[in-house]
Amino acid sequence: MKKTEEISRLPDTELEIMKVIWNGEKILSTAEIKERLEVRRSWNISALQTLLNRLIERGFLQSYKEGKNRFYIASVEETTYLALENKLFLNKVNNNSLTKLVASLYDSRAISENDLDELAAYIRNKTGGET
C-alpha cells in the first residue's frame, strides 16, 4: 500500500469511485462498481472504464482480468487518503489549527455539544487522560 506522501488528491468523480471500492468487498468487477455507483446517478461504462484506468495509472488501483471480467483492488487505503485530504484541508483553510477548525464547526452549528463531548473523550483516551 502507498504512503500519504506518495499519493495525490483525487478529482471528485475518481473519489466517488474509490469510495465505492473502499466500501465494497476487497475485489470488485467493473459491473459491480457501475451498479453501486448507479445508486446515485447513471454511469456510462466507457467513461467509467476511462476513470478506472486513470486510477490505475495514478497508483490508486490494481487490476486483473479473469475471463471477460476485469476486477479492481485498492492500492491506497481509505485511511491513508483521508489523512492526506484532512491534512491539506487543515493547512489550507485553518492554518494547521485544529482549534480553529473545531471552533468554526461549532459556531456554524455543524457539530453539537455532544460531538464536542465525544471529541474530548477521544482525546482523553488517546492521551491517557492527560490534557
Rank of each mutant, 00 (worst) to 15 (best):
T131M: 10
E130D: 07
A103M: 10
N69T: 06
I45R: 13
K87S: 15
E57R: 10
M18V: 11
I111F: 06
L82Y: 13
D117Q: 13
T13Q: 10
E14Y: 03
G67K: 06
T30K: 09
N86Q: 11
N114S: 13
R41H: 11
Y106T: 07
A47Q: 04
K65N: 09
N91W: 06
F71V: 10
S63G: 13
W22I: 01
R36K: 15
F71H: 11
V102N: 02
A120Y: 04
E5H: 15
L61I: 09
L52N: 08
L119A: 04
R36M: 14
E14V: 01
A110K: 06
N96R: 08
L90A: 03
N23G: 15
L15C: 08
L48A: 10
E57D: 12
L28C: 06
L98N: 08
G59P: 06
R9G: 09
L15M: 13
G59C: 05
E5L: 13
D115Y: 01
S75W: 01
R58G: 09
N53F: 04
V93W: 01
I17N: 06
E85G: 01
V102H: 00
L52H: 10
W22G: 03
A110P: 00
M1K: 08
N96F: 10
S104Y: 04
M18I: 10
I33M: 02
A103V: 13
K26E: 15
M1F: 09
T79F: 12
L119V: 02
Y81Q: 01
K19Q: 12
T99A: 12
N114M: 07
V20I: 14
V93P: 00
Y64K: 05
P11E: 09
V20R: 03
L52I: 05
S97V: 05
E32P: 04
I56F: 12
D12L: 07
M1T: 08
D107P: 00
S46M: 08
I7A: 01
K19N: 12
V39P: 07
D117H: 13
R109M: 07
S75L: 14
K26C: 12
L101A: 15
T80V: 14
S108C: 12
E35V: 06
K92H: 12
K126C: 09
K3G: 02
A74I: 00
E130R: 11
I123H: 08
I123C: 11
T30M: 09
W43V: 14
E5S: 15
R40C: 06
R54C: 12
G59R: 03
A110R: 01
I27W: 04
L52T: 03
N125V: 00
F89W: 06
E78V: 01
V20E: 03
E66L: 13
S42E: 15
R36N: 15
A103G: 07
L84P: 05
E16P: 02
E38M: 08
D115V: 03
